[in-house]
Design a protein around this nucleic acid. Structure first.
Length: 570
RNA sequence: GCCGAGAUAGCUCAGUGGUAGAGCAAUUGUUUUGUAAACAAUAGGCCGUGGGUCCAAGUCCCACUCUCGGCUCCA
């Protein structure tokens, strides 16, 4: 169901209530968005504690709102009516410039400049709404403009839907990786290194499993892994173009007598150095160089966000050197990898094409146009749905991003596949073609997970901490009924460890139900209980996460089952 | 970086300008447990950091650090 009209109407109601309570506030714009609406105000200083008061006023005002009355006006009349509000005047000027009709909508005693799209009977339909939060937002989304106060809210046509949505929000917050990660002892942050995660022993297991899977999949597809320096002389980044386009976002290491070294923020310059380190033949192409070195980016303090936005991270990176006529087939190969990876985790993703940013790009426009056309063709041929974000390309070329949503529905860029005609030229990279001439390769920059950090953040929320067997930091926990069974439990532990199953033995002096509960809360896939019945016959009682019934099996049978399960999943 | 909010025990949180609190977790003891919480005792604190106001500051004021929700920017 589409709630846009209802929610946009609610934005009007919000503005009316704010004006009633804060007469000096200046309403600007108030659209419906995914899951709700917002309205931006200038001259409004409020805190979250004021929201209930505004909500009460909204309920009060809406009673007199029988309809939204449309009034068409000319620009002079409009400018007269909104003469006190420079924001509305700016909007009116734009409408006039574009020869668009100017409409004003009246509801109750409130009028607003608006292009329309409302519910029919606000006093009847507009009952189930909630103001959610306040935030700062720049006028027209430009950080050079004044910052306004934005109030977010949501609205539904029934009380039930509103309650369900609010409950869902609360539930989603429980999946937040920023809460779950530290609680499950996967990672932590410390103020001594803002934005740079500490990976704890259990988190490192997940991290390494993901890297191992990545390594296995790519080795079989002809990728060759390299490791390259973290610190590089400034000159490397002058050559790549990053010095002009990215230096301000890089950490810099100063030396006494060798000038500045940049702390690696991207892997491509080093990959280019490797490509250029010997003569290359067309027979070597596509040459696929992969790496997962640590990257550091000096992100602005306000953008840091758990594992989703960090200052230190690793990408599952690769740079592929191809001839021009290999671009299309190589992209297809990469899209196949994307499909393979995301289906392993049952993750939903979408593609987005990022095109040339007129403010920040390298090379000539014709080359860009050609590259963008190539990517569009590839996307269309792939049959997958995609969106386009103009100006979102890297400075060296257009890109196809893989987008995903977190537990709260916020969209994040994960993988990206970028086409680069610029850097190979700047690094003077060449290969010998079949006809003996020297040609410049094209580089495809690509990551599938994106960054391991962001990807693990998404995985934590996707699984709610209940990782599939192959990723689970602890795959099985052994609970002896009493300490009389400790010896047998130890024997079970030894067997499982021998089979490379990540397993813990809990000898804590607590009743069994308490230990079961603890293991359940840690979301361990297998809880193995051993007592007299099991010890006598060489069995274990198995409680599998999510199953209602426990089953009892011989140790060897459990081990072979688990091992087969891990192999089958990846 | 900008707007707004927050920081008290390992975690979740109380705390009225006047002796620093609870539950869970931890430790020790008792209990010997059959699938989501046994009982008791003990220990645990520069109340984010630094200034200030006050007879007296966890509490009021200022600055800073970090975190969160957004904006902008990005994997």
């Amino acid at each position: 169901m589409n709630y846009d009209n209802l929610r946009h109407s609610c934005a009007h109601l919000l503005a009316a209530a704010v004006l009633d309570l804060y007469p000096k506030a200046l309403p600007t714009i108030g659209p419906a968005i995914d899951n709700g609406f917002y309205y931006d105000f200038d001259n409004l200083k409020i805190s979250g504690e004021d929201l209930p008061r505004i909500e009460t006023k909204m309920h009060e005002l809406v009673k007199s709102w029988s309809e939204f009355k449309k009034i068409e006006v000319n620009d002079q009349k409009a400018m007269q009516q909104f003469s006190h509000n420079s924001y509305k005047l700016e909007l009116i000027a734009d409408l006039t410039k574009n020869h668009e009709p100017i409409t004003i909508y009246q509801s109750g005693s409130f009028t607003d400049l608006c292009r329309g799209g409302h519910c029919e009977h606000p006093s009847k339909e507009l009952k189930h709404f909630r103001l959610l939060s306040i935030a700062g937002a720049y006028w027209r989304g430009n950080e050079k403009n004044k910052m306004l106060s934005r109030i977010y809210g949501t609205a539904f046509s029934t009380r039930k839907e509103l309650d369900e949505y609010l409950t869902m929000l609360e539930e989603s917050k429980k999946r937040d990786h920023k809460k779950l990660g530290p609680a499950l002892e996967l990672f932590m942050f410390h103020e001594t290194a803002p934005g740079m995660p500490y990976w704890l022993p259990k988190g490192v297991i997940i991290y390494n499993e993901l890297v191992n899977f990545w390594r296995r999949e790519h080795k079989s597809r002809g990728y060759q892994e390299i490791v390259s320096p973290i610190l590089n002389k400034k000159e490397l980044y002058i050559t790549s173009g990053h010095y002009d386009h990215y230096w301000s976002e890089m950490f810099v290491a100063k030396t006494d007598d060798e000038g500045e070294y940049g702390v690696k923020a991207m892997n491509c310059p080093n990959a280019h150095v490797v490509f250029g380190s010997k003569t290359r033949s067309y027979r070597d192409l596509p040459l696929r160089l992969s790496d997962t070195d640590s990257l550091h980016r000096y992100e602005r303090s306000g953008v840091l966000n758990g594992l989703f936005r960090v200052r230190e991270f690793r990408q599952d990176d690769a740079h592929i050197y191809v001839s021009k006529d290999q671009i299309k087939s190589e992209y297809k190969e990469v899209f196949d990898i994307v499909e393979r990876f995301y289906s392993v985790f049952n993750l939903k993703y979408s593609f987005r094409l990022g095109t040339r940013n007129p403010e920040n790009f390298m090379g000539n426009v014709a080359t860009w146009d050609k590259a963008e056309a190539t990517l569009k063709k590839i996307l269309e041929d792939s049959g997958k749905e995609y969106s386009i974000l103009d100006g979102d390309g890297a400075f060296y070329g257009p890109k196809v991003d893989i987008l995903m949503k977190d537990s709260l529905g916020r969209e994040w860029q994960m993988g990206t596949v970028q086409l680069d005609f610029q850097q190979p030229r700047r690094f003077k990279l060449q290969y010998t073609a079949a006809d003996g001439t020297q040609k410049t390769p094209v580089t495809i920059h690509r990551v599938i997970y994106g960054s391991l950090e962001r990807f693990i953040g998404i995985l934590i929320e996707h699984y709610g901490g209940a990782f599939p067997l192959w990723l689970a930091p602890v795959q099985a926990v052994i609970l002896p009924i009493s300490d009389k069974h400790a010896d047998y439990a130890q024997k079970v532990l030894d067997s499982l460890k021998l089979a490379n199953i990540r397993c813990e033995l809990v000898l804590r002096n607590e009743p069994l139900p308490a230990r079961v509960r603890d293991a359940e809360m840690q979301k361990i896939p297998y809880i193995l209980v051993v007592g007299n019945r099991e010890a006598e016959a060489g069995l274990i009682s198995i409680r599998h996460r999510g199953d209602k019934e426990n089953v009892t099996k011989p140790i060897a049978e459990f081990i072979s089952g688990v091992t087969a399960d891990i192999i089958a999943k990846v």
